[in-house]
Design a protein around this nucleic acid. Structure first.
Length: 908
DNA sequence: GGGCTATATATTTTT
DNA sequence: TATATAGCCC
């Protein structure tokens, strides 16, 4: 991740390719033409639609890219095209993705096309990383310092818990986790505490939701920290409230490209709109006023302008149920011009190369003449993240949002056989409200396998049979790397893993907790964070007693309370407390030692290479020793991980950039050399492809998942169906669906019925592979269950049945086979240590808000003087004999002379 | 401060 | 069933 501060200031940027002084517009093009066309090798091999998607550089473009139609290729080629035509400098292109992986891949592929130029693309990244970049430059506008910390989910929950407790609420009755989800949901919509619907606010903690949200935001601000949602919301607010800042970005970006547009949430949508739509000739503030965003995607109908934040008058007078709906058709307000408004597509050439930003600025013009051309690529049929805030509506509404846009459909599929596409297309056609695409392929061959549906008695047998299929394929010479098992829910993975271990079959599990979520890594990171940012209380609390220093609940609480009362970071508070006798000698000595250590490490920060410093920290803090002395089985692995952490730090130029990398990029690399079957969830499989795909668990209740049906109704079902579509379209040649008759859920066996999705498959492209009615539990399952009924053979002479029988015997005899020698890779999987609780007593940040705090806040440090009679909670009454700043020496009646902090005594 | 037992709870997950 | 966490006791 590049250092956010190293970015080129506007003024120093090279002018756009039509160099200053040279004619622009048609003339420039004419001149370019005279010099001969720019190299266009990169266009070769594109089909007509792909080419159109690449070459339509003017005006808003929506590319509806079905599965396997070359989406990434279009996106990267389009950038290469813009660059090589000289339509923009690399730094004038904003290219956003959702995941780091996608960003990395895009960068790589652009690099192949344009070489070094990709290095000049500072604005290629995830929504979040670009959000951070914007936020770091204008942090003060969000009430932060530019060295703010980014909290991950774990920190966020810990902080919320503290807030809930501080408000005097029972954190058991009102779990922090639940509230964290609510906050995420609000932030996905761009809401600040003042904007949330009354109903939402009432739903938590006896109607104190808004209060809590607000308190949480305040805490973040004092901690100089952001959660992930803030990385989107703060920039939106900054852009919206600061026309000059917005104008800067408007003149900066000339092309915006968005990947996976169907996954954008409302906040991301708003963010894009702000950047992509500039006012015609008015001041940028016309776009910046909150009320221009009537995002109608809300089911509730009209909502207050999100992020009205300070000063806005959100929804006063509106009751929770009083929303009017019917905004579905609302066009975007007319005063928000679209980039292409008023320009028919045909006259596009006239403003083909509009005046570069620099020129218009130089000539004193507003940047209003420039267009920002947005191009969104996505597939409404692959929208599977509705449950975390994605609004399919954003893509469905694109043409309305960006009038004059071009919609290009990529329907030629290069991945799958006609049967796989036929099955997938037929299935997805059961959804309503699609933009509609029909994938086709030229990869047609009578020899191609149809999609196979298999039945099994229970999940164990399912795993056994899949394992057998895999071994057979392997025997036929297929690589395990070309096979994947895609499950609906991760608990399904276990049975496959167990089976593969007994079979000695290599596998890799993708997804789940990652490297940076492991306990030891998070602990180490917490040390580094405190050194880099002494105000990071969450980090401090995490490691204050790790390794054990005898600083228990009481000690930590004292530091915490004192820090909050004084409004200072805990480390600083600790520094003051250790100079007194507030604490018993033992914890005090331990705390002093820690405080001194941090001081020492911080001094080293400037002088020592950061990876070296990291080693010193882990060594001197006793953290390494803690694991060395640990006799448990995981300890060596943890030490190994710590070494790996330090090794990976070397790749970064500073501790700061390393910490930023970790907070945003949490993925682990995989071992490409290992030949292994992949096991992952359907969600994790999006974007991937495999020669052979196994899709187990197609049963009602699991897939579609009961919970989706219960909570999401029809749209929930449709999202499940899209998930099925994603699953099917991952397969290139072979696709096997499975359902079982009995599945163990939460420990009890339940009999299940085949998924309705199986009924929705077209008979022409599907085979029932084996149908042993008395054994596999097909029951009524058979041809009639398919859409266009066709006869299926369902007798025991089928190879499938025989194989099934064979599997059974083979499997039992093999059960005792060697367990060793199986290569198991867990991509992104740590041990089962989800969170901060494992192996450690969690530090209770119980905060006593109330009298004591109120008093100490109102007391200025110097209100005590020698001779005052005071009361101390622990030492009782006494007389002050000396005052030294906020430290008092008191002669207590019973305890004798002690040094205490003024915050801990009250006048009597 | 550590270790034990009781108890709730159980999709999908990126940043 | 199995896993994580919270409370309790020493």
């Amino acid at each position: 991740m590049s250092d956010p501060f190293d970015d080129i200031p506007f003024g120093d940027e090279p002018g756009p390719p039509a160099a200053p002084g040279q004619p622009s517009g048609i003339a420039a093009r004419a001149m370019a033409a005279r010099r001969g066309p720019p190299p266009r090798d990169y266009l070769e091999g594109l089909n007509g639609e792909q080419r159109r998607a690449v070459e339509t550089t003017d005006g808003p473009v929506l590319v509806l890219a079905g599965a396997g139609t070359g989406k990434t290729r279009v996106l990267t080629t389009r950038i290469a095209h813009i660059l090589s035509l000289g339509l923009a400098w690399p730094s004038q292109i904003l290219a956003v993705t959702f995941t780091n992986k996608a960003a990395r891949e895009m960068k790589e592929r652009i690099g192949i096309l344009v070489g070094e130029a990709v290095e000049g693309m500072p604005w290629l990244g995830t929504f979040h990383s670009i959000g951070v970049k914007i936020l770091r430059r204008h942090a003060e506008l969000a009430g932060l310092r530019s060295d703010f910390t980014i909290l991950d989910t774990d920190d966020q929950i810990r902080l919320i818990k503290q807030v809930i407790q501080a408000e005097g609420l029972d954190d058991k009755r009102w779990p922090a986790r639940t509230f964290a989800h609510m906050i995420d949901g609000w932030k996905n919509k761009g809401y600040g505490p003042k904007d949330i619907p009354e109903g939402d606010a009432r739903a938590f903690a006896n109607g104190r939701g808004r209060e809590l949200f607000s308190a949480y935001q305040d805490r973040l601000k004092t901690l100089n920290a952001c959660d992930f949602g803030d990385l989107l919301c703060h920039p939106i607010r900054i852009l919206r409230d600061n026309p000059d800042v917005l104008a800067d970005y408007h003149s900066r970006f000339r092309y915006i490209l968005v990947d996976e547009y169907q996954d954008t949430n409302t906040a991301q949508y708003m963010w894009l709109r702000l950047l992509a739509q500039r006012p015609r000739s008015k001041t940028p503030s016309s776009v910046a006023s909150g009320d221009t965003f009537s995002h109608h995607g809300e089911k509730e109908g009209r909502l207050p302008s999100p992020l009205v934040g300070e000063g806005g008058s959100p929804r006063s007078g509106e009751t929770g149920e009083g929303y009017s709906s019917g905004f579905e058709e609302a066009p975007f307000p007319g005063d928000l011009p679209s980039p292409a408004e008023g320009r028919a597509r045909d006259d596009a050439p006239d403003d083909f190369s509009s005046a570069p930003a620099e020129r218009s600025r130089a000539s004193g013009d507003s940047a209003s003449e420039n267009k920002i051309n947005i191009c969104c690529v996505g597939d409404d049929d692959q929208s599977i993240y509705g449950w975390r805030g994605a609004e399919v509506d954003n893509i469905l509404r694109f043409e309305k949002d960006f009038p004059g846009s071009t919609v290009i459909r990529l329907e030629r599929n290069y991945r799958s056989t006609e049967h796989i596409l036929g099955a997938a297309s037929h299935l997805i056609a059961h959804n309503e409200g699609r933009l509609g695409k029909t994938l086709f392929t030229e990869l047609s061959d009578p020899d191609h396998d149809k999609v196979q549906v298999h039945a099994a008695w229970d999940s164990e047998e399912e795993a056994r049979a899949v394992g057998e299929e895999i071994e057979q394929a392997q025997r036929r010479g297929h690589n395990l790397n070309d096979m994947a098992i895609l499950v609906r829910a991760s608990f399904q993975m276990r049975e496959f893993e167990d089976r593969f271990v007994t079979l000695g079959l290599n596998y890799r599990v993708i997804g789940g907790p990652r490297f940076y979520e492991r306990m030891e890594i998070r602990d180490a990171m917490a040390y580094f964070r405190v050194v880099a940012q002494p105000a990071d209380d969450l980090a401090f609390e995490r490691i204050v007693n790790t390794p054990k220093r005898g600083l228990g609940d009481a000690s930590v609480r004292m530091v915490h309370d004192y820090a909050r009362a004084r409004g200072i970071p805990m480390l600083e508070a600790a520094g003051e407390i250790v100079q007194t006798e507030e604490m018993k000698p033992k914890p005090r000595a331990a705390l002093r030692e820690l405080v001194d250590s941090f001081k020492r490490w911080r001094d080293l920060l400037e002088k020592t290479p950061h990876s070296e410093l990291a080693e010193v920290i882990l060594e001197e803090s006793g953290y390494t020793a803690m694991w060395q002395n640990d006799r448990s089985a995981e300890a060596p692995g943890r030490l190994e991980n710590l070494k790996e952490l330090i090794r990976s730090m070397e790749e970064f130029e500073s501790l700061r950039s390393f910490l930023e990398h970790v907070s945003l990029v949490m993925d682990a690399e995989q071992n490409a050399d290992l030949d292994a079957v992949s096991i992952m969830t359907l969600h994790a499989a999006k974007g991937l492809e495999f020669e052979t795909v196994f899709l187990p668990g197609w049963e009602e209740g699991l897939f579609p998942h009961q919970r989706s049906l219960d909570e999401g109704g029809r749209s929930g079902l449709e999202e499940e169906r899209r998930l099925a579509y994603v699953g099917l379209t991952r397969a290139k040649r072979h696709c096997h669906l499975w359902f079982v008759s009995n599945r163990r859920i939460h420990g009890l066996w339940q009999s299940t019925i085949p998924s309705r999705f199986l009924d929705e498959l077209p008979a022409a492209h599907v085979d029932v592979a084996e149908a042993p009615t008395n054994y596999g539990g097909f029951g009524g399952y058979g041809a009639s269950r398919f859409d266009k009924a066709e006869a299926f053979s369902a007798n025991r002479s089928t190879p499938g049945w025989q194989r099934a029988q064979q599997n059974r015997t083979e499997a039992t005899s093999r059960n005792w086979g060697s367990r060793s020698g199986v290569a198991v890779e867990r991509i992104g999987y740590g041990e089962t240590d989800s969170g901060f609780g494992a192996g450690r007593k969690s530090v209770k940040g119980r905060v006593i808000e109330g009298e004591l705090v109120a008093k100490s806040v109102s007391d200025t440090p110097s209100t005590f003087s020698t001779g005052d009679r005071v009361f101390h909670l622990k030492f009782g009454n006494g007389n002050i004999v000396a005052v030294e700043g906020n430290k008092l020496t008191v002669d207590f009646d019973k305890a004798g002379q002690k040094r205490v902090l003024d915050g801990f005594v009250e006048r009597v």
